[in-house]
Simulated scan of single mutants.
Amino acid sequence: MHTVGRRLGIATSVIAVAAALSGFQDPDTPPGWSSYTIDQGKHGALVGSPAGVSGPLAGWIGSGGASRTYDFVLTPSSEYVLTSPTQPEDQFDWNKLPGFSDCGDVDLARNGAMFGWRWRIDTSPHRLEVVPYANADGVHQYPDSALVTLSHDDLAAKEPLRYSIEIDGALYRFAIDGTVRGRAVHESATLPRSCPTHPTNGGKWYAGFYFGGTSTAPSQIVGYIREPAAQPGADDPGGTGSAGSVGSIAG
């Protein structure tokens, strides 16, 4: 279990008021899933959902609940390199996975919880890092070390992980579970919440897949999401509930 305190971050704020846009579904999207596509030069993602699939949560929900759980695949397109960053350190900014605003705010950059991700080109080998990420009255919070790291081969396997964020009084509880190339992933962490007495099921803005930080995507980035997450079956070696393997979608 990783528990992290409140700190200032280097990442700039996510634009929570930008709604997810409808777009064409990525042709490699697995059956029953939706795709997120961040085009070159953009921050926000287009959403593509097949017929009969409601797709990921998006926009303002008046009774937003106290948690969000989804299955997500980060693909090799996430191995980005900024050649003309807006600011010199933008390669190290945290991009965002889906999350929600909190404390009555519509703006996740002020109050909200999500996961952050980035591609590290200063390591050998290069790697993708995922962290719990929350904003508390505008203060960025995330740990000094990654909760989960993924290599190029891990991304190429296109195996989903289950991401969960839950409000628990004065805390956000984060969890990442699944299996990547035979490696079990079961990681959790907490971050402080700025409004411990605010109702947990109040209105929330549900955000999507986002690039930045300050720079826009230098190339097209595609991810796949299934929300609500499918529950593991009896044959799933990971067990029941939100923990455990959610299978592979690699063809």
Rank of each mutant, 00 (worst) to 15 (best):
R6K: 15
R6N: 08
G9V: 08
T12Q: 12
S13E: 08
V17H: 11
V17N: 13
D26Q: 06
T29H: 04
G32Q: 07
S34R: 01
S34M: 05
S35D: 02
I38S: 01
D39N: 12
H43I: 06
H43Q: 09
G48I: 01
G48T: 03
P50D: 06
P56I: 06
P56N: 06
S67F: 06
D71G: 05
T75N: 08
P76H: 10
V81S: 11
T83L: 13
T86W: 06
D90S: 12
D90P: 05
Q91V: 02
Q91M: 10
N95D: 13
P98K: 06
S101A: 12
N111H: 12
A113C: 08
F115V: 03
G116C: 08
R120P: 00
H126R: 10
Y133I: 01
N135E: 09
G138A: 13
G138S: 12
V139A: 13
Q141T: 14
P143T: 02
D144V: 07
S145E: 12
S151D: 09
E159W: 04
E159S: 06
L161F: 07
A170P: 05
L171I: 02
R173W: 04
I176F: 05
G178D: 02
L191N: 02
P192V: 08
S194T: 05
C195S: 10
H198F: 15
N201R: 10
K204M: 02
F209E: 00
T216Q: 14
I221Y: 04
V222Y: 02
I225L: 11
E227T: 06
S245R: 02
V246E: 00
G247R: 04
